[in-house]
Computed example of a mutant assay.
Amino acid sequence: MAAIDCGTNSIRLLVADLPDASAGPEAPLVDLSRRMEIVRLGQGVDRTGRLAPEAIERTRVALASYAAEIEKLGAERVRMCATSASRDASNAADFREMVERTLGVAPEVVTGDEEARLSFTGAVRGLPADAREPYLVVDIGGGSTEFVVGTRAGGVEAAISVDIGCVRMTERHLPGDPPGLGQVAAAQADIAVAVDRALAAVPGRQAATLVGLAGSVTTVVAIAQGLQEYDPDRIHHARVSYDAVADVTADLLGKTREQRLAIPVMHPGRADVIGAGALVLRVIMERAGMDSVVASEHDILDGIAWTLLPAGS
C-alpha cells in the first residue's frame, strides 16, 4: 500500500507492508520506502488565496517520482491526502487535475478534522509505556496545526485544526532575516490566540502527554539532542523539556537563514520557516501547561497508510 501526504510545505510518500501477525497489535508498518520533498505548495496562499503555478509544478515533479516508486514496488492500493494549502486555494481544481494526470488517482482534500484524526491514528500506535494517557497530539504543518485529544482504546475524543502553520506564520509575521523583536512578538500573539481557541475546543490542558508531529517538531528535538545528523531512530519517541524547546526556539529566531542552514540536522527547505515552527511548538507547550513533548516520526502519513488495510486486517 502507498500513502501520500501533500501539505503546505512538503509532500511525503510511504510505501509499506503489513507487520507480521506475530509482532503484536502495536507493531508498526513495515516500511518499503519513505520519502519527503520540500515543494512549498502553499507558497503565497495566505496572501493571494491561490496556488502559485511554480508551486504546482514543483509538486508535479516530486509526485511523478513518487508514482514511479509506487509502480516499482508494486503497491496495490494508493491514497493521497492533501491538506491545508489545497483546502484554502481558489484554484485547487488545477492542483487536483495535475494529481490525477500524474498519479492516476484523485487527491482527497481532507478537512481539518479528518487531518487531525489521521495524525492521531499514525502517532499513538507504539507509543512507549511512560507516555501516559490521555494524549494531546499536535501536528504542526506548513499552513495549519492540528490538535487532537484521545486515548488508544477510545480513539479521538476531540479535534480541531487552526491556521498557524510554519509557512503561514513566516509569511505573515517573520520577513526579517533574522526577524526583529516586534515581528516575533506579533507572531507569538497571533499563535497564542489560535492556541487558546484550540485548547478551548479540545481538553488539551487535561492531557497527560503532549505528542508532537511533523518536521518542525522533529527538527527542534534533533537540535535539542545535539545530533550531528538527522537520525529518525533517535528522534522517534524522544522526550524533550519545555526549557530545551524554549532555548532552541530563541536560538533559531536569533539566527539568519544562512546560520540556520549550517545546523547539521537542518533540511535546506525548512531553514526559512523553522523559527516559526519552533515558536508554534513553544507557545503550545506554554499555553497547555506541558513541561515536555514526546516527538513522533509517525504521523498523518502512517495514519493514511493504516486506512488502506483490507477489511478484517
Score class of each variant (00 low, 15 high):
56 I>A: 10
23 A>P: 04
93 A>D: 13
16 A>M: 05
37 E>H: 14
86 S>Q: 12
83 T>K: 02
15 V>Q: 04
77 R>P: 02
90 S>D: 15
79 R>V: 00
56 I>P: 10
33 S>D: 09
73 L>C: 09
97 E>P: 04
97 E>S: 14
95 F>N: 05
29 L>G: 04
42 G>N: 06
61 V>E: 14
93 A>S: 12
32 L>H: 10
47 R>S: 04
69 E>H: 01
63 L>G: 07
74 G>D: 05
51 L>F: 02
95 F>C: 03
21 A>P: 11
38 I>M: 12
80 M>L: 15
48 T>N: 09
78 V>W: 04
40 R>Y: 00
46 D>T: 05
15 V>S: 05
35 R>A: 14
87 R>H: 06
86 S>E: 06
67 A>N: 08
18 L>G: 09
15 V>P: 01
56 I>N: 10
79 R>M: 05
40 R>V: 00
33 S>T: 05
28 P>C: 06
88 D>Y: 12
39 V>P: 06
17 D>H: 04
93 A>T: 11
31 D>K: 15
96 R>N: 12
31 D>F: 15
69 E>G: 01
33 S>C: 08
48 T>R: 09
18 L>S: 13
68 A>V: 05
44 G>T: 02
62 A>G: 10
78 V>K: 11
42 G>E: 01
75 A>M: 03
29 L>A: 13
49 G>Y: 01
53 P>Y: 04
38 I>D: 08
29 L>Y: 07
70 I>V: 11
57 E>V: 08
73 L>T: 07
58 R>N: 12
88 D>N: 15
83 T>S: 07
47 R>V: 00
66 Y>E: 07
66 Y>R: 11
16 A>D: 04
49 G>H: 01
66 Y>C: 03
70 I>L: 01
80 M>A: 06
95 F>H: 00
65 S>Q: 00
64 A>V: 08
45 V>A: 07
78 V>M: 09
67 A>L: 08
80 M>F: 02
57 E>P: 02
61 V>T: 15
44 G>V: 06
66 Y>I: 02
91 N>S: 06
22 S>K: 13
75 A>H: 03
33 S>A: 13
48 T>A: 10
41 L>W: 01
22 S>G: 12
18 L>A: 14
79 R>K: 14
95 F>K: 00
80 M>I: 14
17 D>K: 09
97 E>V: 10
50 R>A: 13
36 M>D: 11
57 E>S: 11
18 L>F: 12
64 A>R: 15
51 L>I: 00
42 G>Q: 04
35 R>C: 10
36 M>F: 12
64 A>D: 13
32 L>D: 05
33 S>E: 09
78 V>R: 12
86 S>M: 09
21 A>Q: 11
84 S>L: 03
86 S>L: 05
80 M>E: 07
84 S>E: 08
19 P>Q: 05
